[in-house]
C-alpha cells in the first residue's frame, strides 16, 4: 500500500500539500464567520499530510514535519484549549468567558475563542495524523 508511488500521485502530493495546508489555515481563521473552523481545518490539514504519506511514505513525511511529532501537536492543541480557559479568571468572570482584544494597526481581533479554535485545530490534526502514521509505520514493519 505504501509503495504505490506513481508519477501523478507524487506530483499531485508535492504540489497539493502546501496548498491544502494554506487552505486549512484559511478555513481556520475565517471559521468564526463563514463555514470552517478548527475541526474542519484540522481535518483538511490531516488530509494533506495523509496524501503525502501515501505518496512518499512515513519517513519522508517525518522529514517534512521536521521536529514536530504529531503527538506533540496533540499536546499543544490540548494546552492551547486549556490556556483559553483562564484569561476570564483575571477579569473576574466565570472560566471560559470569551475575551476579545483589538490588535492595533491591522483590522484583526484576537480572542480566546480564536486561541481555542487553534487548539482544536492542532488537536484534531495531531490525533488523526498520529493514528494514520502509526498505522502505516506498523504496516511497513509487517509486510
Amino acid at each position: 500500500m505504501v509503495k504505490s508511488g506513481t508519477l501523478i500521485l507524487h506530483t499531485a502530493a508535492r504540489i497539493l500539500m502546501p496548498l491544502q495546508l494554506l487552505f486549512s489555515v484559511f478555513l481556520l481563521l475565517r471559521g468564526h464567520d463563514e463555514p470552517g473552523g478548527g475541526f474542519i481545518a484540522g481535518l483538511v490539514a490531516a488530509g494533506a499530510f495523509t496524501l503525502y504519506l501515501f505518496a512518499f511514505g512515513v519517513s519522508a513525511t517525518r522529514d517534512v514535519l521536521r521536529m514536530v511529532d504529531p503527538r506533540d501537536l496533540i499536546g499543544m492543541g490540548l494546552l492551547l484549549g486549556m490556556i483559553s480557559v483562564f484569561p476570564a479568571w483575571f477579569v473576574d468572570q466565570p472560566f471560559l468567558t470569551a475575551q476579545w482584544w483589538e490588535v492595533p494597526g491591522i483590522d484583526f481581533k484576537a480572542s480566546t475563542p480564536l486561541i481555542f479554535d487553534i487548539g482544536v485545530y492542532l488537536a484534531v490534526l495531531g490525533s488523526v495524523l498520529a493514528m494514520v502514521m502509526t498505522l502505516m509505520e506498523v504496516d511497513k514493519d509487517e509486510p
Binding site: G31, E34, P35, G37, F116
Partner: peptide, 28 residues
C-alpha cells in the same frame, strides 16, 4: 462571530468541545 455553529463550538459550549478534543486525543 457570524458562523453560529462555530460560535457554539468555541464559545457558548466551549467546555463541551474541550472535553471532546480530549476524547479524540485519548483515542489517538
Amino acid at each position: 462571530g457570524r458562523n453560529i455553529v462555530n460560535v457554539i463550538l468555541v464559545d457558548y459550549r466551549a467546555l463541551d468541545t474541550l472535553g471532546e478534543i480530549f476524547v479524540l486525543a485519548l483515542a489517538a
